[in-house]
Write a protein that binds this DNA or RNA. Structure first.
Lengths: 239, 239
DNA sequence: TTAAGTGTTATTGTCGACAATTTAGTGTCA
DNA sequence: TGACACTAAATTGTCGACAATAACACTTAA
């Protein structure tokens, strides 16, 4: 599984390695969202000193996976619907702009490479009818390439270095395996086309719509679940 | 001087205090941009242990003021024109969206409060002809209020918690004391109007133009300086 | 019964020392 | 002279112990 993003260099120090381990544990929910983190306990579990663990915790805080209060301690960030929607709003802003910049700054080779990638995705999608692989790897790959294509270090660092892990966390914990793979694929195609045409304005608009569509899709899903629960409750009351 | 932003809580631990001190030193250029940071030296200067200093360094890294390499050390971030322009691009994306969300989510009281604030700025501007105070405090205050008005924790954290200090650093080191105070004031007024009208789309557009205008202003200034230098060089050659 | 106060326990913050790695300098050989 | 290897110094990473702070349980008074 390709979980590491190309922006962060390989982990050399033990704090780095433990950071990655805990990161995965949090993303996958093995350390539950919202739970308190005990420094002595985690240090013992990973066989490291508390100083080293704290170094790892600092990096976790940097990518918004945990929150710290002075003299109180750390908690795994609490997943919530509001948090998810806020994250999407932020992505819409940042990735939209990244897409505009990509249309301006990507080299012709990069564009060709991305178009080739999309063709591979198309075939895989046809084969598997686009459920798991596409969303998990293909989608992330696509967004990655666009962001890196912006050639803007600030944007790259913010999205790939920080927000990326939070996004993955929500994907894991809310079980978001794309029900809109084929539509997303079309949207990706059009975005690349706009980038290839060097039409930054259109590229940004399309990317924003693409992400906004995802967000609305989730909002609807949530709304459905609520109505479903209410109906269940009504049935329970009636019975 | 009001340098702390309302988002981050008061410094309680000594690492926090040292963090703030070093932060100011970096922002004001007392620790030069691009210079290497010696842990033993800084620890001695601030009379703390290296562990505590490293804790402070971690926070500095979090707001992009220093960069660390494993087994090599930390450097103060290198100010550059490209970096500044990239920062503006990022601001345009984030603050634009924050402004859109502010139009949606700000309470009527908040809007009234912001309109009142602008009136104060107007008077101060008339008095002092809007040079120092306006740009340094007023402008930041305005942008702050808008960002906080978005009620989006993610956006607030990213802009106010992280990018803010970098912006201040560039402002200090590139000596950016607004030559466009009066124009900026008009732009602020129109943005608030759009927010009051709950017109998120317009509010975002105006904010983006506002920041883009700042960016272009800088680009021109840079271009001027380059031509000026070239002319000076030519004169030197001639003489 | 609730509220405030007090002492105990557990957790976090800070420290100094040691280990691992990088960097600088020196010397050797082609 | 330049390139390479090796040694020594300095810097960073890691550790365990102590100090300061917060959380908890218990007692006492209204």
């Amino acid at each position: 599984m390709k979980t590491n993003n190309p922006t962060q260099q390989a982990a050399v120090t033990t704090a780095d390695k433990v950071f990655e381990q805990i990161q995965h544990a949090i993303v996958e929910g093995k350390i539950p969202s919202g739970s308190k983190i005990s420094e002595p306990e985690l240090a013992k579990r990973y066989q490291i000193s508390r100083s080293t663990l704290r170094e790892a915790l600092n990096r976790l805080e940097k990518c918004h996976l945990i929150e710290r209060k002075a003299n109180v301690g750390s908690r795994v960030v609490q997943c919530s619907i509001e948090g998810l929607l806020e994250l999407y709003i932020t992505r819409e802003a940042l990735e939209g702009m990244a897409c505009r910049e990509a249309a301006k700054n990507m080299s012709d080779e990069e564009i060709l490479h991305m178009q080739a990638m999309l063709k591979v995705h198309a075939q895989t999608q046809e084969l598997k009818d686009g459920i798991a692989y596409y969303q998990e790897e293909g989608d992330l790959d696509f967004h990655y390439k666009v962001i890196l294509g912006s050639h803007n270090k600030q944007l790259i660092e913010l999205i790939c270095g920080q927000l990326y892990h939070l996004i993955r966390m929500y994907r894991c914990q809310f079980g978001m395996n794309s029900p809109r793979a084929s539509r997303a694929f079309d949207e990706h195609s059009r975005i690349i086309q706009a980038i290839a045409d060097r039409d930054g304005e259109l590229a940004e608009m399309l990317m924003r719509r693409h992400i906004a569509a995802s967000r609305k899709n989730i909002e609807n899903k949530i709304a459905e679940e609520i109505t479903h629960k209410q109906q269940t409750n009504i049935q329970l009351i009636k019975s």
